[in-house]
Amino acid sequence: MHDPAGSVTGLLGPSGSGKTTLMRAVVGVQVVKSGSISVLGEPAGSAPLRRKVGYLTQAPSVYADLTVRENARYFAALYGYDAATAERAIADVGLAKAARQLVATLSGGQRSRASLACAIMGEPELLVLDEPTVGQDPVLRDELWKQFHDLAGRGATILVSSHVMDEAGRCERLLLIREGALIADDTPAAVRERAGTDDLDEAFLRLIKAQEVAPA
């Protein structure tokens, strides 16, 4: 697949369809049975690539026994960024007020955002976000999506997974997967057109049914 630089690509599919597995393969932590993956011209998971890739795991992967700030500073240091960059990432995910709080004491949604802050640290070239907006309220969700587009506007390539179709319309490009197989790879408009409906939820259902009738 080819995600053009400076765009947001949505990876959509029902729960269990293989979104997380695909994303883990892209960041190079998944044992891949067949095929090879190269990302930004380098093999997935190679050392030069790891400097350029930010990854948000589906379950928050920050240290519960550290504060938000301590977590952010640690991840900033791993990528070679200073404390100011860490503070900016914390503010970007709306956790400035909770910066001194232990992650263990945060709400579920705040904890995911703490994890997100560590992923967007220093504006990586490729950002792989596994269900970043789950558990966030609509206002925050809207703000996060605006930020993803801002980051893309500054040249980042963003791959976002979601299983809620109303988020699909916010992507420049959609990958629909089901049971580990890609069933559509297009712009939201083209997907709507192909399925003959304006509702992306409905469009996805139709594409699945069409595939069941005539397996590719």
Partner: peptide, 13 residues
């Protein structure tokens, strides 16, 4: 078990 190891291994560490 908390996934921080996997996360660390995607960084330059």
């Amino acid at each position: 078990t908390t996934g921080t190891l996997e996360r660390l291994l995607t960084t330059p560490l």
